[in-house]
């Protein structure tokens, strides 16, 4: 029999991507409601995704915006 925590680890990504079938999702939720070990790791993954997104996001320099606008076709 497959270790339920190993199985839960396998479906972590599709679970958070909302990419599981209803049956698979319910099975994962049932395990997560009982298993603190997996619950912590799922919550960590959610926080990590947000943090990666924030950390990897840089604002465009305003000068670039001006340079892009200058590429537009001039109106005669």
């Amino acid at each position: 029999m497959i270790d339920p925590c190993a199985k839960c680890e396998e479906v972590l990504q599709p679970f958070l991507d909302r990419d599981l079938t209803d049956a698979e999702r319910l099975e994962a939720e049932a395990h997560l409601s009982l298993c603190e070990y997996c619950g912590k790791r799922y919550r960590f993954e959610e926080s990590l995704r947000r943090y990666v997104r924030e950390a990897a996001t840089e604002t465009m320099p305003p000068e670039l915006k001006q340079r892009l606008a200058a590429l537009r076709t001039p109106l005669i």
């Binding site: 680890e9 993954e45 943090y51």
Partner: peptide
């Protein structure tokens, strides 16, 4: 596996509050 990073952080003393665990990772490291 997908638990690898958490397990490594936990082995190395992180734990408790989830945001604290995530904040051990710096922007530069990401």
């Amino acid at each position: 596996g997908d638990y690898y990073l958490y397990n490594r952080l936990e082995e190395n003393g992180a734990g408790g509050d989830m945001d604290e665990v995530v904040e051990r990772l710096s922007q530069d490291s990401i």
